[in-house]
């Protein structure tokens, strides 16, 4: 990608790319918030440690992606302070609070898989080498987040009364909202920023989910109102109550 000196100089493909990266970064920001909110519900000391680590991992990735978005005119000031609940572009999957430990495990499994799947398509990007390296680094660091949720799913399943499969089915439907309808025009793919189309990535996601959960045939796609700039259907933004919990506070005391 050519170095962009002014935001006005962005091509259409660049604008789409910027939006998608913003969505991915926000997905990580809100997922980090999930880890924060659920931390004290941990079920062993090692869970407390692991959840702290995954929270930092997600915040760290989000920060790196926002920094990369600097070339699209995004500032940390905007990211951390001037935005409200309506401006956060995380997946719908993360709106509804976890209802139990098993629902939490199912939801983070879906979220981690979804985000990693989408990023995997940037790893070989020749159009933006910096982004490709960043995507690769993030994917490597996310590996243990996946073992964590898979390990927990396995443990929970030993109980015949476990709800983890039902929870996962509900969360899967919510997760698919992130990809909208199959076979829509995909300028990020056609311009070579990604090596796979959104439709392919949706398939790839369903395949990896299928290695852990039963994926029902012909699982419904979302309604027509899907918008690529926020990667959701319906109105933009996250619940105010969630935003209030995860937003940053005490600005005057931020460390440099």
């Amino acid at each position: 990608m050519a170095v962009i000196n002014s935001i006005e100089g962005l091509s259409e493909a660049d604008r789409f790319l910027g939006d998608e990266l913003y969505c991915i970064a926000d997905a990580k920001l809100v997922l980090a918030g999930w880890y924060m909110m659920v931390l004290q519900n941990g079920r062993s000391i090692a869970d407390f440690t692991s959840i702290c680590a995954m929270m930092q991992g997600q915040y760290g990735h989000a920060r790196a992606l926002y920094q990369h978005l600097g070339r699209f005119g995004v500032t940390l000031e905007e990211v951390e302070w001037t935005r409200g609940a309506k401006d956060i572009r995380s997946p719908k999957l993360l709106d509804r609070p976890p209802q139990s430990w098993s629902d939490f495990v199912a939801a983070i499994f879906m979220a981690e898989q979804a985000i990693s799947t989408q990023l995997s398509a940037y790893r070989t990007s020749l159009a933006d080498r910096t982004l490709a390296r960043l995507a690769d680094k993030i994917l490597k660091e996310s590996r243990f987040h996946l073992s964590y949720s898979v390990g927990w799913i396995k443990a929970l399943r030993k109980d015949p009364a476990s709800t983890v499969d039902e929870d996962a089915r509900r969360r899967l439907v919510e997760a698919l909202d992130w990809w909208g309808e199959p076979d829509q025009p995909d300028i990020i793919f056609s311009s070579g920023y990604r090596d796979a189309s959104d439709s392919d990535l949706r398939e790839r996601f369903l395949n990896v989910v299928g290695t852990t959960f039963d994926v029902p045939d012909g699982i419904a796609g979302p309604a027509k109102s899907w918008r690529p700039s926020i990667r959701r259907t319906g109105s933009p933004g996250i619940p105010e109550t969630l935003f209030e919990k995860i937003r940053f506070k005490n600005r005057e005391l931020a460390m440099p």
Partner: peptide
Amino acid sequence: SVEAPNEQLAEARAWFVYD
């Protein structure tokens, strides 16, 4: 050392506790 009910969880916990 870490404690876990299966290998995947043990792997993740080991990675996070001893990082």
